[in-house]
Computed example of a mutant assay.
Amino acid sequence: MRISNRVHNLIAQVKTKILGSRSDKDLNNKRQLLIKEFERTDSNLKEISLDNKKALFNGLYDPDNYFTDDILILMTNTLSFLNEIDKLLIDGRKKLQMNIFDDLVSLPLNHIVKYLFAHPPYRNFAEQQINDIEAELLRINRLIFIETLLHSLKQQASTQKLNPADQEGLDSMKYLVKKAGPFTLLDKQKFDSLVKKLEHLNNLSGLGITERERVSIVAA
């Protein structure tokens, strides 16, 4: 076999290991889509700045770079998490008192952002890591809901009296999102069940919880 042919075959074998069964065309299409998604995310983020965090995505602009599926999925997951985190930060800042937002929403969410970019750039997150991040985002989503509801009820305290069952339900919801340890699927189910059980509180005059927000919590 001629040396040039052997070199060509070796390069092809290396590319197969890197790209798997995907063709160069498939890779380029995926790369172009990720570039668009990255630029859209970078442009739309309101609470998160990517100024010093773009190294992970810089390689996308070099068409000669080869990416494993793991790296492409890592980028996709990172962008997805960033968009979710930014929405929670916007929602929390709009609805919560500043001290509650800073301590209970902004601090843990920005910790997750740092965690995302501290992850090794050559492999995707492990399944448990993804599950842990998703659980924390679900917890904070529900924390924003209950803190908003509690603040609204507090403002109505002079005209509205809660019965013991309602107060117990609110205390349970608050406990579920502030207890030590991960926010489990069972915690989510308990919380969402209480949202439905206490939905009559949303109808009290002056409360800041809309029906759309209540439904979105249960659906998340």
Rank of each mutant, 00 (worst) to 15 (best):
S205V: 13
Y66E: 10
R31H: 01
L10F: 06
N203R: 15
I90S: 14
T68H: 03
K17I: 10
N99A: 14
V215R: 10
K25V: 12
F125R: 08
D171V: 11
Q128Y: 03
P108L: 12
R123V: 04
K154S: 11
D26G: 05
Q128S: 09
E136L: 00
V177H: 05
L88Y: 06
E213R: 14
N141S: 14
A219R: 12
A219M: 11
S43T: 02
V195F: 03
V215C: 00
E39D: 14
L19W: 04
R22M: 10
F38L: 08
L186Y: 05
D51H: 12
R31C: 03
G208R: 15
L50T: 07
Q97T: 14
R93E: 07
I18Q: 14
F67K: 09
N9V: 10
I146F: 01
L33C: 00
K196T: 03
I3A: 09
I90P: 03
L150D: 05
H111D: 14
N9Q: 13
I130N: 00
T148E: 05
I73Y: 08
S23W: 05
V105H: 00
K174I: 06
L50C: 06
N124G: 03
R22G: 03
D26C: 07
L79I: 09
I85T: 01
G169A: 07
Q32N: 12
R214N: 12
H111S: 15
A219N: 14
L162V: 09
T159S: 14
N202H: 14
A157F: 00
P182K: 12
E134K: 12
N52E: 02
D62M: 04
L10K: 12
G20I: 03
L150K: 08
S23H: 04
E37V: 02
K188P: 01
F191C: 11
N163F: 13
D187K: 12
S23V: 07
L89H: 07
Y115G: 11
G206R: 13
S172G: 03
N44V: 01
A12E: 14
K36N: 11
R93S: 05
F67R: 04
T210S: 15
Q156D: 05
S106A: 15
L74E: 01
M1G: 15
N163V: 12
F101R: 03
S216F: 04
S49I: 04
Q167C: 02
E47H: 05
V113D: 10
K114T: 14
F81T: 10
G208M: 15
E37F: 01
H200L: 07
S158A: 14
H8L: 09
